[in-house]
């Protein structure tokens, strides 16, 4: 009877310690998960930031200004346009003819 009691008591202690470690582990993993999730959120925000930046840099008004000032480009005008067509007849390719 006493031996059985001792055995059961020992078993109880082992189980209790197991519970403590598994709870501890669960909490540790949970903290890690939280950390990873917040990192994911940060990366999301960064992605949004980059999209915004891309839109800002690709906006037509900026490209237009850079092309005009930085590269001294000019808008195409009909006088300086050469149109090529497949059934190329002399009337359709006009250069320097328009007003």
């Amino acid at each position: 009877m006493t031996r059985l009691n001792l055995l059961l008591a020992g078993l109880l202690v082992v189980c209790a310690l197991g519970l403590v470690t598994s709870q501890h582990r669960a909490r540790r993993y949970f903290v890690e998960l939280e950390h990873a999730q917040s990192q994911a959120r940060q990366l999301d925000v960064h992605w949004e930031q980059l999209l915004l930046e891309q839109s800002g840099l690709a906006k037509a008004s900026l490209i237009d200004a850079k092309a005009r000032r930085g590269l001294s480009m000019q808008p195409i005008s009909p006088e300086r346009t050469l149109h090529l067509s497949v059934e190329s007849s002399p009337e359709k390719t006009a250069m320097g003819a328009g007003r």
Partner: peptide, 11 residues
């Protein structure tokens, strides 16, 4: 695609 010849603009 353009639908008119280019040299006919008269103002």
């Amino acid at each position: 695609a353009p639908d008119a010849p280019l040299s006919t603009q008269v103002i």
